[in-house]
């Protein structure tokens, strides 16, 4: 679709539901508005491996990006989830979600270098750029990350990319939840090449990646049982895209973000822990208030990630003064409230 068509649709009036590949339709508030398809606006605009930067149009499938990067020995180290669907770059940035590597490599927003957006009045705006360090103007590109399309139509994104690790190994330990959390925090305070962790049903799985020598010596230091490569790859992909058995079925899925040192939360339901203890998934029909409360007491927040009662808002509400600023920012970029109504906040 051409930029002119996008502009016409935006200016026509009525609300729009921006859609890339639809792989994250389940995420955020209920869907509303006329669908605006972005998938056709695709293609890599520039990629120079030695600059560690790739720029692509929003509709470019993540699979295409990974493929092109892998050919040059590089990757998106924040491991954006595709959830088994035809996920696009624009959708990944709008949702702001990161995969298993988040705790060690950083979040999606950490890799965003620049964006081109069309605002709610059909203006094309470019923020950030194609270079690694840039402090000219406010960092609006990172504001777009995780805004779930409520601030503008993302047209193009520049991301920092990294070389694929030279070596990789996955090891597994039998540990109950409490000791697993203690172990994870102890390891995180040491210079170990841990790049992903997951705890589920008494098993702690740890991915090590980096230089050959670093991975070898970390395997020696940590011990544990080595997971065969194919199984390991499937394990981390299954976590990233939530295809593991833990995520199957209709029970509501909650995501709790808490400080990594938070002891076991003791909430009813099955738990899966990632990111060194900082991200805890919970399955079950509990009462929202109880979960939100537990997360808040730990100094974190909780999101109804999939299913469940979404009417009351899926994200933890912000305190008053922050909410006011958030609404003012929405009005800056989308004054007529065209984009993705209700997707981030129930009434915004």
């Amino acid at each position: 679709m051409s930029l002119e068509t996008f502009r016409e649709r935006i200016l026509k009036g009525g609300s729009l539901r921006i859609r890339g590949g639809g792989s994250k339709d389940f995420y955020g508030g209920p869907l509303a508005g006329e669908v605006l398809e972005v998938a056709g606006h695709r293609g890599i605009v520039s990629y120079e491996p030695t600059e560690l930067v790739i720029t692509a149009r929003a509709g470019t499938p993540l699979s295409e990006l990974s493929h092109v990067l892998a050919e040059r020995g590089q990757w998106l180290a924040f491991e954006p989830p595709a959830f088994g669907g035809p996920a696009t770059l624009g959708g990944a940035v709008a949702s702001g979600l990161s995969g298993p590597g988040r705790a060690s490599h950083g979040a999606l927003r950490d890799f965003v270098l620049g964006v081109k957006v069309m605002d709610g009045e059909g203006r094309e705006l470019t923020f950030g750029g194609q270079v690694m360090k840039n402090v000219a103007g406010f960092d609006v590109s990172r504001l777009m990350a995780g805004s779930i399309g409520t601030l503008g139509l993302i047209l193009e994104v520049s991301l920092k990319v990294l070389p694929l690790p030279v070596a990789q190994a996955t090891v597994r330990f039998e540990l109950p939840e409490g000791p697993a959390l203690e172990t994870l925090n102890r390891w995180a305070a040491q210079p170990l090449p841990v790049t992903a962790t997951a705890w589920e049903e008494g098993l702690l799985t740890v991915r090590l990646a980096g230089a050959e020598a670093a991975v070898r010596s970390a395997c020696d230091t940590l011990g544990g049982e080595r997971v065969p490569e194919a199984e390991a790859t499937a394990h981390w992909l299954g976590l990233r895209d939530q295809t593991r058995a833990f995520f199957a079925g209709d029970a509501p899925l909650w995501r709790l973000a808490v400080p990594s040192i938070t002891p076991p939360l003791d909430l009813p339901g099955a738990t899966l822990i990632e990111w060194g203890g900082a991200q805890r998934w919970l399955r079950g029909e509990q009462i929202a208030a109880g979960i939100r409360d537990a997360a808040r007491r730990a100094g974190g927040h909780a999101t109804v990630f999939r299913g469940g009662d979404r009417a009351a808002g899926v994200f933890t509400p912000l305190p008053g003064p922050l909410d006011v600023i958030q609404r003012r920012l929405k009005a800056v970029f989308d004054p007529r409230a065209v984009f993705n109504p209700g997707r981030l906040l129930p009434d915004l």
Binding site: F138, L143, A145, A257, V258, P317, P321, I325, L344
Partner: peptide, 23 residues
């Protein structure tokens, strides 16, 4: 007084922490 970000990752709402840094 505003509290932006938190000791937990990926605070809800717009990423005002990123916006403040470099402002």
């Amino acid at each position: 007084i505003l509290e932006l970000g938190s000791h937990a990752l990926d605070a809800p709402g717009y990423d005002l922490l990123a916006l403040l840094i470099g402002s």
